[in-house]
Design a protein around this nucleic acid. Structure first.
Length: 490
RNA sequence: GGGCCCGUAGCUCAGCUCGGUAGAGCAGGCGGCUCUUAACCGCAAGGUCAGGGGUUCGAAUCCCCUCGGGCCCGCCA
């Protein structure tokens, strides 16, 4: 691992520091200020001037070194940005100058003391009086101009991707800002942030393959949750009325640009409200998130475009009407399963002969309508067959009270008026159990027991935080907004 | 699961079509330069061409297999 000549050279430099009695991994660097502070003070100066005020101390990673005879320019980068250090031999002394130039390498973490200054070319700088090695990097960083480009290495060694690319750091900062704004939005609307179990005897609330693990204590197989839905609804039964949770869920399925086996789910449940109320809440949330994303972003950026697009009210289309309009089919709700299968087979000959009605309708919608859903769009009132956990529509027979929010052709959020009839819920669970094995919802007897105590009329919503980040950062793949995505072992 | 593409120095990339001693830039080494900013100039060094097998006098290059990755399709609330 450490047999590269480049690493050996750096280890030799490290030994040289120690030989001079300087610890290359010191314990602390008190009084350090962000580089932005030095830049702000330097901004007031003319080219070639130095600030006569108190000295400033900064710390960060050495990104580039330009030695120009007896003057050297170091680019130091911290979380606040980049600062040029001007190191002059006649200021710091010949011996120290030569030692620093020889022993500091790009990638090293170092501290600097000096006076804010502007170079003769006007660059915001620090006129250095002292440099301190804070941690020697013995591995060389990626090339300074292109950074780390190899897609595989960027995922496997995210720390290198991050240290080499301010853009990548900015993307994950934006993700964190979106999460914070989202929590604040729910908090401000009197939703209670809660945490429910990740480890469960049976993962339920969605149709997805779970990951399995084992409890030594219980000597039982446990499953990692695939959704947050059922525990949160239990909390409504318990009288908490408005709850939300943000946390990881796990689905033992393939990854692609919008799916990842480990992802961050957000779900919120609201008692004494229906899906119309939820649509208003979600419209407000997403327009707020888009504003947050656009704050400080350039006008043509994906975030700025999103802020423009997510201005309420969002377009609303009826599932069946949109499908009929786009596909040319008529009376879709009356079509037999044979007719639906024949329609799907026109573009997908491999459609399984036992595909249920709900799946066929989803396929048709995905084929004809989803590709047109670039702008934020609520798709409402799905056929009952596609949605087993939602409450039947109060006025449209054969439909449920549900909406999905689409943007850039993928689903961003999914909500319904919740089914709260315990008898009906049990019937639907049993119906699912008799379906295809990979299609079933896990039967959750304790949840049915909870419903018997009375779940208020309620609405709930779920969405993937990763997809929010994907939509508002303009990233190409969900892996680009997950710090450490799953990768196959080499 | 199917198709297409990629893997060459620590990093960014040429070279592969048409087989003939492995190239550049950055980073690192040595030397020069007191205001550069992808600094610049000179010298020297740096390789399991992803791995394995095959064809051939000769393979980074052609063929097959394997590993890893990307894109598209399929699957997936």
């Amino acid at each position: 691992m450490d047999d590269s000549p480049l690493i050996r050279e750096r280890i030799e430099k490290l030994a040289a520091w120690r030989a001079d009695g300087i610890e290359p991994y010191p314990w602390s660097f008190p009084g350090r200020r962000p580089t932005s502070e030095a830049r702000q003070r330097a901004e007031r100066l003319g080219a070639g001037e130095a600030d006569a005020g108190p000295p400033v101390r900064v710390a960060g990673r050495l990104r580039a070194v330009r030695v120009h005879g007896r003057t050297a320019f170091f680019d130091l980068e911290d979380a606040a940005g980049r600062l040029q250090l001007i190191v002059r031999s006649d200021e710091v002394g010949t011996d120290r100058f030569d030692g620093w130039v020889r022993r500091f390498d790009p990638g090293d973490l170092l501290g600097a003391d000096g006076r804010p200054a502007r170079s003769k070319r006007g660059e915001l700088s620090l006129d250095v009086t002292e440099l301190t090695l804070l941690a020697k990097a013995i591995a060389p960083p990626p090339e300074k101009f292109h950074g780390l480009q190899d897609a595989e290495e960027r995922l496997r060694r995210r720390y290198v991707d991050l240290l080499a690319s301010p853009d990548v750091r900015a993307r994950f900062r934006l993700r964190a800002r979106l999460e914070r704004a989202m929590r604040a939005y729910f908090d401000d609307h009197d939703f209670l942030g809660v945490e429910t179990p990740v480890l469960l005897p049976v993962a339920s609330g969605a149709a997805a393959a779970p990951f399995l693990t084992h409890s030594n204590w219980l000597d039982e197989t446990l499953q990692l949750r695939i959704a947050l839905e059922l525990p949160l609804k239990r909390l409504l039964v318990g009288g908490l009325e408005r709850v939300y949770e943000v946390g990881p869920c796990f689905r033992n399925e393939d990854a692609d640009t919008t799916h990842h086996p480990e992802f961050t789910m957000v779900e919120a449940y609201w008692a004494y409200a229906d899906y119309h109320d939820m649509r208003g809440l979600i419209e407000g949330l997403f327009s707020r998130l888009a504003e947050v994303a656009a704050d400080g972003a350039p006008p043509s950026s994906p975030a700025a475009q999103a802020a423009e697009a997510f201005r309420p009210p969002f377009r609303t289309i009826d599932f069946v009407e949109a499908l009929e309009e786009r596909s040319g089919l008529s009376s879709v709700p009356e079509l037999s399963i044979e007719a639906l299968r024949a329609e799907v087979a026109r573009f997908d000959p491999s459609v399984p002969s036992d595909a249920p009605v709900g799946k066929l309708l989803d396929r048709l919608f995905a084929q004809y309508v989803e590709p047109t859903l670039d702008a934020p769009t609520f798709v409402v009132d799905h056929p009952l067959a596609t949605t087993p956990l939602a409450k039947a529509h109060r006025s449209k027979p054969g439909r449920v009270e549900r909406f999905e929010l689409f943007y850039r052709r993928f689903e961003l959020a999914n909500a319904y008026t919740e089914l709260n009839d315990p008898i009906e819920q049990e019937r639907r669970f049993r119906e699912q159990l008799s379906g295809r094995p990979d299609d079933r919802y896990a039967y959750d007897a304790d949840f049915l027991e909870a419903l018997r105590y009375g779940l208020p009329p309620s609405t709930g919503v779920g969405f993937g935080l990763d997809r929010i980040a994907l939509a508002f950062t303009g990233a190409a793949s969900i892996k680009d907004v997950i710090l450490f995505p799953q990768v196959r072992r080499r």
